[in-house]
């Protein structure tokens, strides 16, 4: 196991952790807006870390560009979708959750 493999392993484990955080948030948080917050940020970071980990195993420049493109596209798409879903949920009459005091 050389240094590249160790870096890949660590980055993949870190990415998996963020995916776990996103899924737990999706299942446990109380309303659409908080779930939106958990999912669209944590998952993108997890995917970015996994793509970065994969980049350590690749020596072809074009494939590196492709991995960067995948991450960039997912970031762009999820930022757009977070706004769209949030707005449409508000228009449908969803009330943001407040802590019951």
């Amino acid at each position: 196991m050389n240094w590249n493999d160790i870096a890949t392993t660590l980055l993949i484990i870190a990415g998996s952790f963020f995916f776990l955080a996103g899924t737990v948030g999706l299942l446990r948080l109380p309303d659409v807006f908080t779930r939106l917050h958990a999912l669209t940020k944590a998952d993108n970071l997890g995917l970015g870390l996994i793509a970065l980990g994969a980049a350590f195993q690749i020596d072809n420049l074009m494939q590196l560009v492709k991995l960067g493109l995948i991450w960039g596209l997912v970031m762009f798409a999820s930022a757009t979708i977070a706004h769209l879903i949030g707005r449409s949920a508000l228009e449908q009459g969803q009330q943001p959750w407040e802590k019951a005091s």
Binding site: G15, V32, L39, N44, G46, L47, Q57, I70, S78, Q94
Partner: peptide, 26 residues
Amino acid sequence: PTTADRLLAVQLFGTTGTAILILFSL
């Protein structure tokens, strides 16, 4: 409970599927 929630979960499928595919390609 709402459609937005289901749509969000489908987004999760998409991101997670992308990560799985990167791992498979490695």
